[in-house]
């Protein structure tokens, strides 16, 4: 079961990386969104999969009556989802502002920090 889901996680990663490598801002953004899902699913799967039984103790009991899904990766992933969302939002706004200021959505044309023809550094003291 984990084997098949591992392959699915691989597919998520592959899609995300393929998108991030393209030069268009929007595709990169979507790549980031998928990357978040890929990583979350990776953590979730590595904690082993178990069908349908949530880690909740029934009312009046002190321990779960049967083996439940692993609660630890769930706790990790829960916060990771929210954080990857806020990261995505930040990245989105960054890209949006960059597009507004630079007038392009092509990664290769965003050359403010590292201009195309950089001058030689000054020699001497």
């Amino acid at each position: 079961m984990e084997t098949i889901f591992s392959l699915l996680v691989g597919a998520f990663f592959a899609a995300s990386i393929y998108l991030m490598l393209s030069r268009k801002l929007v595709r990169v953004l979507m790549g980031v969104a998928i990357l978040g899902n890929a990583v979350n699913l990776l953590i979730f799967t590595s904690g082993r999969l178990l069908r349908e039984i949530p880690p909740i103790i029934p009312l009046g009991e002190y321990l779960p009556l049967e083996t439940t899904a692993n609660p630890l990766p769930q706790a990790l992933v829960l916060t990771a989802i929210v954080i990857s969302f806020s990261f995505f939002a930040f990245f989105l706004v960054l890209g949006y502002r960059a597009y507004q200021e630079l007038g392009t959505d092509d990664m290769l044309e965003m050359r403010v920090a590292e201009p195309e023809n950089e001058v030689e550094p000054p020699l001497g003291y």
Binding site: F85, S86, A89, F90, L92, V93, Y96
Partner: peptide, 9 residues
């Protein structure tokens, strides 16, 4: 935080 993000967008 998220309302703020959504609103500013």
């Amino acid at each position: 935080a998220i309302t703020s993000i959504a609103l500013s967008l």
